[in-house]
């Protein structure tokens, strides 16, 4: 045993007596020990459950999950009849933002949501690039204004967080009361007039819905969706 250098003297000072009172302190130790053991037993009853969590660890990007959410929104949203004359009218989705989201949203492009097909258009406002085989122009590159008519044709518009605040406000103004479900992912998206906003909390994606605004636009969200949403008002 390595030794502490020098002469050893044992002191007989008053601290030798144990002052740990058998009262609260020891009780706490006992209680917490029991709690930890009980807890461990509780975990023991559910062995293997954690493997379910592997799904969470799957290699999905944040936008993959958001795209899946948007797809689910298609399933649980009802638009007024005049915007979808036929039961198989496609659902037109506009994704506004940079190219980072493209791969994720391409995964839901052309997918069937019930009888209807999801038709995704990408618009990168920074580069004025509209990416869709269709010929519609949405944005007039020369006059820097949004083409109202084209914009209002969409059923849903998703605004990514890198959309310029001024541009976002302008687009939301253009949409106005038209039955276009606006989705966003910035803290102040609802304050800026948006309807559905995704945000991350404790590593999970939550969404808040301004349902009054949604109803004003004659869009109806299913109760199943609203049950999961955080309902906010002005």
């Amino acid at each position: 045993m390595p030794e502490c250098r020098g002469r050893k003297i044992r002191l007989t000072v008053s601290h030798e007596q144990d002052i740990c009172s058998p009262g609260v302190g020891r009780l706490f130790v006992v209680c917490l020990t029991v709690l930890i053991i009980l807890f461990g037993m509780l975990l023991g009853i559910f062995p293997g459950n954690h493997l379910k969590g592997n799904l969470h660890a799957a290699n999905l990007s944040e936008y993959d999950i958001k795209a899946a959410f948007v797809y689910n929104f298609c399933l649980f949203t009802e638009w007024p009849a005049d915007t979808c004359p036929a039961p198989d009218t496609p659902i037109y989705l506009l994704v506004v933002g940079n190219d980072d989201l493209r791969d994720s949203f391409l995964k839901i492009n052309g997918k069937k949501a019930g009888k209807r097909t999801l038709d995704v258009t990408f618009f990168n406002p920074r580069e004025d690039i509209l990416y869709n085989p269709r010929e519609d122009t949405l944005f007039n590159p020369h006059e820097n204004t949004v083409d109202e008519k084209a914009l209002r044709r969409f059923h849903m518009v998703f605004f990514s967080e890198d959309v310029d605040a001024k541009f976002l406000t302008e687009m939301i103004m253009v949409i106005g009361d038209y039955p276009v479900l606006t989705l966003g992912e910035t803290r102040d998206f609802i304050q800026k007039g948006g309807m559905v906003n995704f945000f991350e909390k404790n590593m999970r994606l939550l969404f808040e819905v301004h349902n009054n605004r949604v109803m004003t636009s004659h869009i109806r969200l299913s109760s199943r969706l609203l049950k999961l949403a955080i309902i906010v008002t002005d």
């Binding site: 799904l55 969470h56 999905l60 999950i65 797809y71 689910n72 649980f76 995964k107 839901i108 994606l205």
Partner: peptide
């Protein structure tokens, strides 16, 4: 992704 329902989506990390 489309096969995952919305309740499960909300549980995803």
């Amino acid at each position: 992704l489309l096969s995952i329902n919305i309740e499960n989506l909300m549980d995803m990390q």
